[in-house]
Design a protein around this nucleic acid. Sequence first.
RNA 1: GCUGAGAUGGCGUAAUCGGUAGCCGCGCUGGUCUUAGAAGCCAGUGCCGUAAGGCGUGCGAGUUCGAGUCUCGCUCUCAGCACCA
Length: 891
Amino acid sequence: MDEKYFALRIEQKWQKRWAENRTFEAAIDEAKEKFYALEMLPYPSGRLHMGHVRNYSIGDALAWYKRLQGFNVLHPIGWDSFGQPAEQAAIKKGVNPRDWTEDNISQMREQLQRLGISYDWSREIAAHRPEYYKFDQWFFLKMLELGLAYKKMTKVNWCPRDRTTLSNEQASGGVCWRCGTAVEKKDIAQWFLRITAYAEELLTGMSEIEAGWAERVLTMQKHWIGKSEGAFVEFEVQGSKFNESTDLTSGDLNVGSIRVFTTRIDTIYGANAIVVAAEHPIIEANAANLSDAVKDKVEQIKIEKAKPTDYGEEAEKDGIDTGLKATNPFSGEHLPVWVGNYVMMEYGTGAVMSVPAHDERDFEFAKRFNLPIRKVVSRESKNENPESENKQAFTDYGFLINSGEWNGRTSADAKREMTRFAESGNFGEAATTYRLRDWGISRQRFWGAPIPIIYCPKCGTVPVPYEDLPVELPESAPFTGVGESPLAKVPEFVSTICPQCNEAAKRETDTMDTFVDSTWYYFRYTDPHNAEMPFDPETAAYWLPVDQYIGGVDHAIMHLLYTRFWTKVMRDIGLVDFDEPIRNLLTQGMVVGESYYSDAKASYYPPDEVRIERDERGKISSANLKEDDSPVKVAVEKMSKSKYNGVDPDDMIAVYGADAARIFVLFAAPSENELVWQETGIEGATRFLQRVWRLVYRWREVINGRRSAVGAQPERIETGVEARRLRQKTHRTIKRVTENFEGFQLNTPVAALMELSNALGDFKIEPEKAEAGDAFAVNEAVRSLILMLTPYAPHVSEELWETVTGDASGILSSGARFPVADENLTRAEEIEIPIQINGKLRSRVMVAPETPKEQLEAAALADAKVKEHTDGKQIVRIVVVPNRLVNIVVK
RNA sequence: GCUGAGAUGGCGUAAUCGGUAGCCGCGCUGGUCUUAGAAGCCAGUGCCGUAAGGCGUGCGAGUUCGAGUCUCGCUCUCAGCACCA
C-alpha cells in the first residue's frame, strides 16, 4: 500500500472513475431539492487562465457542498464560442474560425478535466454550433413578432480606407487599429432589441433579488438604467419654417416648437436660453435661415463629438446662438435658441432649457458666453437680491422667487403644480426618461449567429420562416479584415429565395452580438439536446432559476442586465414562469500578478529577465533589467500573456496538483477580493494536504476498526479528556464550516479545517494505545475532516475516503453526507473569562460555562492580579457579562 | 465631478450581539534530524522594552464600563459611470 501522497496519480484515478460512473450527471428527481450552480461560460481562447480556475473552484466547492447535503445538483459548462478572436486568427493565420475554435475547446476541456471540476459534461453546449445558434435566431424572430426587434439607422465607427466598421477598441485614439487612418462616423442600418421597453421592470425587479446580489452590482445597473423623473415642456419657436401643431401623444420631435426635458420645472422662470444638440432636427429644418457661422459651428461640434473622448476630461463648453427665438410658456419671455456641445441628442429630447443659476453646466455655458443669470430659487423663503453675483449654481431645492405667481412655493410643490399647469395648458406633461438605450445587436462580422432576415426587392424585409432555421454560416468566407462584412462576399450565402414571393432575394449579412449567445445559455443547459425548442418549459421549471451564479464583476452591467431582460421576454412568451433568473450572484475579484515594464509601459519584461531586490521587510528596493541594468517599474495588473505576469494553470497542476491549486486559490483571499498571485503561498496548501494524508494513514487501522472498536455509541464509551477535547474541536469545526459555506465565505473554512487537522496532529494518544473512546473521537474527526475537505480537494478526499472506508465507489454513491454539528458537543467544559480593569485586560479566570454573575464577580475580585491593580483604589462599578467578561471600574 | 466599496503585523487574511485584536497560512528566526540538502518535527514571531510595563485596527473627535465593530468630520486607495438636463 502506497503511503506517499502522489497528487497526479490520485487525480487521474478519480477523474477516470467519475467519468465512468457518470457521477456528476444530473437528472430530474422530484423527490429531491434541486440546486443549480452556475459559472459564467468561458470564451475558448485556447488556454485556461487563473481567473477561470478561481471562478470554477468557487462554483465547484459550492456544488460539492450541496451534493454532500443531499441536493440534486446541476453543474454544467459550455463555450461562448462566437466572437472576434476566432475571426482575427482567420485574418492573421489563415485558419478556419471553426477549426480554430474547436481545437481550443478540446484543449480547454482537457484542462478543466485535469482540474477535476465536477461538471455534467453530457450537457456541454457551444454557441457556434448550429443546434445552438438556431435558437438565437428563433428568439430573434419571436422578438420581431412582439415588436421587440427593429431596425434603425445608427452611427458606427468607420474606417474609410479599409471600408469596414470598427469596434470602439479598434477605433481607440480616433484612428483605425489596422491602418492608422482617422476614424469616421457613418450611418448604417442596424438591428436593435427593445430592452428599454423593460426599463421600469428591470428597476423594480431588483427588489426581488437584492438579498442575493452584491449591492454594487445592483447599484451599477440602477445607474445604467438611469431613471429620471421630470417633465416635457414645449417652447414655441417663432419664425421656424415648420410650425406644425404640437402632438404630445406621439414621441416625435416637433420642429415648430422645441420640446425640452427637465427635472426642475420649478426653475423655468430662470431660463435664459434653449440649448439644443447639434443633431437636433430644428437645425436641419431651418437650415435655409441659419447663418454660415451657425452651420460651421454645428459641423465643428459634430466632428468634435465623433472623436473618442478620454476619461477624466470634459470638453470645454462651446456653442452658438442660432438666431431663432423660443417662447417660455410660463413667462411669455422670448429666449434665444443656442446650439451647445454639451447637449446630447441621445438623451431626453436633445434640447434643454438653460437655467444657469441652478444648473452647473448651464452656469458654465452662461459664463462662457456672457448670458444673463437669473436666480429663481432661494434657500430662504424671503426674497434675496435677484441679480447678486453668483459664484456657482445653486442646485438644491428651496423657495421660488422671481417666478411670478409661483413665488414663495417650495421647489417640490412647484414641480408638481407647474407640471399640472403645463398639462392643462397643453404645453407640457410629466415625463420619465431613462439613460438605458436599446441594445444594438448587428455586427458586421462572420463569426456570429446570422440574423435570420431576407431582403426582397418586392416584399421588403422578410423574416426567415421558423421551419427554415437555422440560417447556417457557410464553411468559410474571405477573411481580409477590410471591405464589407465577410458574409457579404459569399454569394451562395447572400443569394436566396424570398419565402413570400419565391423570387430572388438577399440575406442579411450581419451577425448577432455575442452577448445574445450568452444571455440565455444557462436555460439551454436544462435541456441541451432539444431540436424543436430552446428548451422544454417543464424541464426548465424544475431546474431554474439559478440558485448560485459565479463570475467576474466585469459582467455586472451588460451580461447580467441583458439576461434579466431576456428572462422577462421569455416569461412573456410563456417559456418560463418567473421574473428573475438568478437568485444569488457572487462576483469574484480579479486574479492579478506583478508585472515589470519600462517607462510609459512601452514594453513588458518576463520575470526571468528582471532582477528584483527586496529589503528585509520584503518590499522591493530595486528592480532592474538583468541585461543592461536599466531600471524597470513594477505594477500589479490583471494577468495577461503580453505582460508576462500570468501563471499557466497547467504548470501549476503539474507541480502541485489540482487539489492544492484549488485550495490555495480559495484560501488566499475572500472570493470578492482581488487576488494578487504569489507563487510561494501554494506550497502551504500542498503541505496541508500532505499533513492530512499522513494523519489518515497514521490512524487508518484504528478508524477502519481493525485495531479498535469504533461502532459503539458515544454515550456508552468512557472518554478521556483528550477524546472529549477532540470531539469538541470536531463539532465546532463542523459548525463553523457549515455557517461559512451558507454565507458563501470559502476562505475561512480552510483555516478551520487546518485547525482541525492540527488538533488531530496534537492528539496525545498513540494509535497503538487508543482505547474505544479515543478511537471513536479520532474516527469522527477524520471522517468529518475528509468530507468537509471534499469541496476543496475532491480527489484526495475521495482517495482518503476509500482508504478509510474501503468503499471504492466514491463518496457520493457511498451515501456519505456533510457532517452535522451536535450543539451540545461544541460547548466547552471550562471557559476562560477575561477580567478588565477600566477596560484594560489584567487577568483571566477559568470557570464553568453559565457561571452566575455573583460567582463571576467574586472570582474576579479574588484574583491576585486584580487585587494588585485595585489595591488602594475605589471600586466604582463592576460590569459582569456572563460567559463573556468582567470589567471593574476603579477611581 | 457623481455613485459604490474599502483601509487591521513584513504579506494574504481572521475576529456572531459593541466584550481577551491578530485565528489560519505565507515569510522570517532558532533548534532537531542529515555526510549534505530537501521534506518533516519542536520552539518563537504585532511594535517598543533585558524586564516590569507601555503602545497598537488610516487620521481627528464623540457615544459607552468597554469601540476594528456604532455616530460625526477628514485623508487616502480601488472600482463603475461621466456634460443624463
